[in-house]
Simulated assay, not measured.
Amino acid sequence: MRCFKLLLLAGILCLPPALAAAGECGPEALGTARILEVPFAQGPVGRASYGRTLPLERGEVVLTFDDGPLPRRTNAVLAALKAECVKATFFVIGTMVAQFPETLRRTAAEGHTIATHTWSHRYLNRIRSETVRRDQINGGLAAARTVLADDAAPSLSPFFRFPGLGHGAALDRYAAAQRLVPFSIDVDGDDWKRIAPAAVMARVLKRLDAAGRGIILLHDIQPRTVAILPDLLRQLKARGYRVVHVVPAQGDTQAALAALDAPRAKPIRLALDRLGTRMAALRVAARPPASFVEEAPLVLRSGLFEEAPEAPPSRDQSRSGGEVRVALIADAAPGGPAPRAGWSGFVVIGTAPQAAGFRAVAAASGPPPR
């Protein structure tokens, strides 16, 4: 009951432990143990950069994926997560979002948290231009907002990760002014290095065992990650680790979007404009067609069908009240009179019974008899 009240009053998701595993995948799946709300006041997190991390219990991990979306590999990562009922956080690149918006929308639709990772993955701590830094930070968020501007928007978060984890006091201050929550890491899988998939698996597990908990960094665009992820999730389950899904506090995402500085660089602006046009077209195409309302009965061409001279219609399913009228009419008899009035407004559906049917005038050898 308390969870239900929180959901209604604050919009906070509240799930009992391992609900996903028990409800969808069964107890053998890893599942998502709990959902952790991370408010803006929490500040930067991740021991690799800030010396502190999320308030996780021993054995709890947060899965994060950087640098996507990239359709084939991101979709494979999503499939592996879905098979184990696990929710993760994806730090996406603006240029990748602009190329593959449908993949981002799928990621959001499957309940994962969407965070940002700059416009084009430039190492901001190596750039002197404040304008370039700002465009990089804001461009990534602007791209994600453009794609997730409707029903997928609840998945968008103000979580942000500096490329290469490169940050500094000035960058952290600007991120705070933009109402962003910088996310560093606690465990690096090194999946971006040229090492074997087995080496990635070994490093993740060894470092996680040493830390006991924390934020794990992987990359959904890397083939090594795609190769090891199903087995890695099973290993986490076997070793007793529990997955925590991080989500923003209510209102924090909107605050970050309100503070967003429109990128100034012309290439980024043009790319965002094209993305906006593309998304608008996709939404129009996906819009369900308006329900058809027949304003008047359908009128068939005069003489299209011939009516029997004397016998009444063998079946009359005509209905009033503006609904479509249906009638089955017996075959015409040779030498009969002209069709009676009143049969010009009907629609024929289905097949006539064996004892009665239709004979198209166009198929007759001569003019209809009189």
Rank of each mutant, 00 (worst) to 15 (best):
residue 252 D to M: 03
residue 180 L to K: 12
residue 189 G to M: 02
residue 119 W to Q: 04
residue 162 F to K: 05
residue 314 S to L: 10
residue 370 R to M: 07
residue 302 S to K: 14
residue 93 I to C: 11
residue 149 A to G: 13
residue 9 L to H: 15
residue 333 A to R: 15
residue 21 A to H: 04
residue 270 L to W: 07
residue 138 N to D: 10
residue 338 A to N: 15
residue 289 P to D: 00
residue 154 P to T: 04
residue 42 Q to Y: 02
residue 364 A to D: 12
residue 245 H to L: 03
residue 227 A to G: 10
residue 329 I to P: 03
residue 266 K to D: 14
residue 355 A to E: 12
residue 18 A to I: 07
residue 366 G to W: 08
residue 206 K to A: 15
residue 91 F to W: 02
residue 207 R to C: 01
residue 315 R to W: 11
residue 363 A to Y: 07
residue 1 M to Q: 13
residue 240 G to T: 09
residue 173 R to N: 11
residue 322 G to E: 08
residue 16 P to W: 10
residue 319 R to E: 08
residue 15 L to D: 06
residue 367 P to E: 11
residue 71 P to F: 04
residue 79 A to T: 14
residue 353 P to T: 02
residue 187 V to R: 03
residue 325 R to E: 14
residue 339 P to G: 08
residue 65 F to R: 00
residue 354 Q to T: 12
residue 22 A to F: 03
residue 68 G to Q: 01
residue 282 L to N: 09
residue 218 L to A: 06
residue 330 A to N: 15
residue 170 A to L: 15
residue 146 T to C: 11
residue 244 V to A: 05
residue 51 G to N: 01
residue 186 D to W: 04
residue 214 G to Q: 03
residue 155 S to C: 07
residue 196 A to P: 13
residue 49 S to W: 00
residue 253 T to Q: 07
residue 290 A to K: 04
residue 231 D to Y: 13
residue 362 A to M: 11
residue 110 E to F: 01
residue 253 T to E: 10
residue 11 G to R: 11
residue 258 A to Q: 14
residue 360 A to Y: 09
residue 51 G to C: 08
residue 306 E to P: 05
residue 50 Y to G: 04
residue 114 I to S: 04
residue 279 M to Q: 07
residue 137 I to T: 02
residue 314 S to E: 09
residue 224 R to F: 06
residue 287 R to P: 03
residue 133 R to V: 13
residue 89 T to D: 00
residue 236 L to F: 04
residue 53 T to F: 06
residue 93 I to K: 08
residue 353 P to W: 13
residue 220 D to E: 12
residue 355 A to F: 01
residue 118 T to A: 06
residue 166 G to F: 09
residue 15 L to F: 15
residue 324 V to T: 15
residue 120 S to A: 14
